[in-house]
Every structure is written in structure tokens, then in C-alpha cells.
């Protein structure tokens, strides 16, 4: 009984004290993550010198990442970015260009939730709620906590996170529910036409890609269809992100 009380005291103390330490802890640990990134990159280069087969595999992975990035960019460009900017200028809503680029310090699966820690913070004018996107355009999430030199980004795919979006095919407003690991789920009436590969866009004027439809499951007796969607990029290999303060 005494031990249970001690455990409860430790638990309650931890729950009360630790949330106040996050800024201090993350500022202290950020250099470790930066060093880790540098060491891992150096190690990869070093090993590649001795292992040609492995270097080919790594090159293959790098090329696949590049291909994925280019595919995402094409996806975004297909919307006619130039035409969009012209239209925005015509209606007096110029696209903002004051973006900040940041390196991703930690990403899933290192973090158990869909949270990123980036190396830019309030010193770079970032605030809670700033949009975080890929260099290619798709939007990933928003900043949830800001520290002087770092910030936490909560991805839209974080478990339970609800995001308003629009289904591109028929302009139907939908609510994406994050399920973790860069995945989403949404429920739609079965009459709404949807196909694998359809894009789901942000509901604002920029209409940036949020997800692409992966699987659709509907049973003959159901009035609704469940749609599984995935993030337009692999969140497990993110290296850089853009933030719009």
C-alpha cells in the first residue's frame, strides 16, 4: 500500500511539474538532435566508401525520395499555380512569400505521436498556429508549441486531429480525422463519388493538397462509406519544411 501511494505521488508530481519543463528540456536536447543528424549523415557517407552494394541501395532510396518529392510537386503544379496566383492578384489576395525554412530535428517514428520538432522558433517569428508545409506545396500541420530556437509541429494526421478539407473531385466539404503515421480516415455518404487517388485539399483560398485517397470500403448494407487517405509525403523521412508565420 505504501508503495502504491509513493507511485501515485511520483505520478502526480510528474504530471504537474513536467509540463513546465518542456521549453528547458527541448532547448537542452536540440543540440543532441542536431549532432545526431550530422553524425548519421557522416556515417552514411563513410560507410558508402566501403560498401558499394550498400551505397547503391542508399542511392536507390535517395532517388526514390527524389521521385516522391517530384511526384508531389507535379501533383501540386497540376493545379496551375501560376494561374492561381494571377487570379489571387486580380482579387487583391497575393500569395504570401514570407516563409521560413526549417530542418526537422525529430520525426515519427522517433516521436510516438505525429509530432515534429523543428529547429526554428520564436526567434524566426514563428507563432502557435503557423502553417507548416512541404517545400513542394502540400500542407502538413500547424505549430503547436514555440520555443526560442525550436518548435513543435502537430501534423494533421496526428491521432484524433480533425481537419476541415474539400474533396477535389466534387468540391464536397469533408472532415479528415487523423489516425497517426501520416494516415487519415473520413466517413462519407455512399452516394458521393470517390476514387482511389483522388486529392483532398485544404478549404482555404490556396487549396493546397492535404491527402490523397488510399482505400475505400463500403458494404452493401451501409449508408456510408469509409475512406482511408494518406499524407502526400512520407512523414518518416521529412528533412525540411516551410513555415508561414
Amino acid at each position: 500500500m505504501k508503495r502504491i501511494v509513493i507511485l501515485l505521488v511520483i505520478f502526480i508530481s510528474g504530471a504537474v511539474v513536467f509540463p513546465f519543463l518542456d521549453a528547458l528540456v527541448i532547448s537542452t536536447i536540440s543540440p543532441v538532435w542536431k549532432a545526431e543528424n550530422v553524425i548519421i549523415r557522416s556515417l552514411r557517407k563513410g560507410v558508402a566508401l566501403f560498401d558499394s552494394k550498400k551505397s547503391l541501395v542508399e542511392e536507390n532510396i535517395a532517388l526514390k525520395e527524389k521521385l516522391s518529392s517530384l511526384e508531389t510537386e507535379i501533383l501540386f503544379l497540376s493545379m496551375g499555380r501560376v494561374q492561381e496566383n494571377t487570379l489571387l492578384e486580380l482579387v487583391g489576395r497575393k500569395a504570401r512569400s514570407d516563409t521560413v525554412i526549417a530542418t526537422v530535428l525529430t520525426r515519427p517514428p522517433q516521436t510516438p505521436y505525429d509530432v515534429l520538432i523543428i529547429d526554428a522558433g520564436s526567434n524566426e517569428s514563428l507563432t502557435v498556429g503557423s502553417e507548416v508545409s512541404l517545400p513542394e506545396g502540400p500542407i502538413l500541420g500547424v505549430i503547436s508549441e514555440v520555443f526560442p530556437k525550436s518548435a513543435k509541429v502537430r501534423l494533421f494526421s496526428a491521432s484524433g486531429e480533425e481537419t476541415n478539407a474539400v474533396l477535389e473531385r466534387n468540391n464536397v466539404p469533408v472532415t479528415l480525422v487523423g489516425t497517426g503515421g501520416g494516415n487519415f480516415r473520413m466517413t462519407l455518404p455512399r452516394e458521393i463519388a470517390i476514387e482511389k487517388g483522388d486529392r483532398i485539399l485544404s478549404p482555404n483560398i490556396a487549396s493546397r493538397p492535404l491527402a490523397t485517397v488510399g482505400e475505400i470500403s463500403v458494404r452493401p448494407t451501409d449508408a456510408f462509406q469509409e475512406v482511408l487517405a494518406k499524407s502526400p509525403t512520407n512523414i518518416f523521412s521529412l528533412r525540411f519544411v516551410f513555415i508561414t508565420p
Binding site: I10, G14, F18, I29, T106, A158
Partner: peptide, 14 residues
Amino acid sequence: ILLVFFVHVVHGSE
């Protein structure tokens, strides 16, 4: 317990 709270502080969310 302290280590789990540390996880929550470092990588946690809401």
C-alpha cells in the same frame, strides 16, 4: 514514470 513523462515532454502532444 519519470521517463514516460520525459517522453511526453520531448515528443508529446495534446
